[in-house]
């Protein structure tokens, strides 16, 4: 990877009171790659994501996005950069007072300047692309299942065709068929649109199927961020348990099996 990094995190420190979440954390995200971020519960994956997208001001350290330091930008410039992000939150974070199609259309109306009719038309297609049936478009988030909320949230994060997609556990709560479809969709979009994806996940299958690189978050920093083979071979107790435990082995075998056939 010789291309300049799209996101450069350097010496990031995050503290909440006396609790240290990140200590001198470095991470790069390159254009067009799918980076999987793994780590134990409470290892600060979501905190890292929130710091990068600017929802959380880090205690110290620098975060460069598109070559600009996020913390030293005016709010207008930040908003312009944020428009190039798509974010899928862990629990969807759909607006509960809007229907699904309005949820997706909101950004299209506000930022892309579409008329309501155009925006909702496009929103329905995006919902369909994310795997939702047509009649779901007029439902409210409270009326649909958790898996459907995830899909609708994906459709919303893709609304503006962002350059970087941040996904916080996108396949958690999806059935295996839906999760596999999600993986395929992610690959298709990445190939066709040149998306860059920052993927926080616990799903080993997703990790083996779609990720170009994997960053392991443990002991308050990134232990290793590299291709999966390199990460697997890293000599570390936690990594060994993670990738060579029963679940890790199964997912790895499944991935190899798929490649062979």
């Amino acid at each position: 990877m010789t291309a300049p990094a799209l996101i450069r995190v350097r010496e990031l420190v995050n503290r909440f009171g006396s609790q240290r979440v990140h200590e001198n954390l470095d991470l790069d995200l390159y254009r067009g790659e799918i980076l999987g971020v793994v780590g134990g519960s409470g290892s600060g994956k979501s905190v890292l994501l929130r710091s990068i997208i600017g929802l959380l001001r880090p205690t110290s350290g620098s975060i460069e996005v598109f070559g600009q330091d996020f913390q030293h930008l005016s709010s207008v410039q930040r908003a312009q950069i944020e428009r190039r992000f798509g974010v899928l939150f862990q629990r969807g974070a759909l607006f509960s007072s809007l229907t699904l199609q309005e949820n997706v259309a909101l950004a299209l109306i506000e930022h892309a300047g579409l008329t309501r009719d155009d925006a909702e038309h496009l929103a329905r297609s995006k919902l369909a692309l994310a795997g939702l049936p047509g009649e779901a478009a007029l439902k409210y988030p409270a009326e649909i299942s958790g898996g459907m909320i995830k899909r609708a949230a994906l459709a919303r994060s893709l609304a503006l065709d962002p350059e970087i997609l941040f996904l916080d556990e996108p396949t958690a709560g999806l059935d295996p068929i839906g999760a596999a479809a999600f993986d395929r969709l992610l690959l298709t979009l990445r190939d066709a649109l040149g998306l860059t994806v920052f993927l926080v996940t616990h799903d080993l299958d997703t990790l083996y199927t779609v990720c170009d690189r994997v960053a392991v978050l443990a002991r308050r920093r990134v232990l290793v961020a590299d291709r999966l083979e390199v990460v697997e071979a890293t000599d570390d107790d936690w990594i060994r348990d993670y990738f060579h435990g029963p679940r890790g082995r199964a997912a790895s075998e499944a991935a190899h099996y798929k490649e062979e056939s």
Partner: peptide, 12 residues
């Protein structure tokens, strides 16, 4: 994939 999605979703 877009075609599949559009075909699968019925118009409102």
């Amino acid at each position: 994939s877009v075609a599949d999605a559009v075909a699968a979703s019925s118009p409102l």
